[in-house]
């Protein structure tokens, strides 16, 4: 229950922060995306796919892109990160590696958003096509902002993980 509440409030708080965060040339850090990346990166996190699903769903509801774009993108990215981390990295990864994962994931997200929006334009005729040129300008500011905020989100995720672990230990001791 504690785990559910912690994840629930984290998603809601990060979404609210995303909505009111001032935009810089149409760019803004995607806190929910960073939260998904960080959780998929943690080896002992079993709930990363659920987090990706609900984070993406909330962004889909609040944003104006083709519905499902963020849900599917977040889930695909979460699986890729989790898979590569578990297969290729046994030791504790460095901050450089983690930053690279976040950066590559960000580029992948923009690619997926572009593809799904193009598909969405064919399904929903009232949807606006995102021009590649606009996306090209937006990518780098998005990436820069996300890399700045990945640290605080990683810290938030660590705090949540610690609380969940402490809670689990306490429950085990009670039994």
């Amino acid at each position: 229950m504690t785990k559910f509440l912690l994840y629930f409030f984290s998603i809601i708080l990060l979404l609210a922060l995303n909505i009111v965060f001032p935009t810089i040339r149409s760019s803004t850090p995607n806190f929910l995306f960073l939260f998904v990346v960080v959780n998929a990166f943690r080896k002992n996190n079993q709930d990363f796919l659920w987090l990706a699903f609900f984070s993406g769903l909330m962004l889909d509801i609040y944003s104006n892109v083709f519905f499902g774009t963020y849900t599917l993108s977040f889930m695909i990215i979460a699986v890729i990160i989790s898979y590569t981390t578990k297969i290729f990295f046994s030791a504790d990864p460095s901050i450089v590696y983690f930053g690279s994962v976040a950066a590559v994931s960000n580029l992948l997200l923009i690619g997926l958003v572009f593809i799904m929006n193009t598909v969405g334009v064919h399904i929903q005729s009232n949807l606006g096509r995102i021009p590649a040129l606009y996306l090209g300008q937006k990518i780098w500011i998005d990436l820069f902002l996300n890399l700045i905020f990945v640290g605080p989100i990683y810290y938030l995720s660590s705090v949540i993980e610690r609380i969940i672990e402490d809670n689990a230990k306490r429950s085990a001791r009670t039994f």
Binding site: L15, I19, F21, T23, S63, V65, G128
Partner: peptide, 10 residues
């Protein structure tokens, strides 16, 4: 106004 589109795509 209490918020903007969180993704910046619209």
């Amino acid at each position: 106004v209490i918020g903007m589109d969180p993704t910046g795509y619209s």
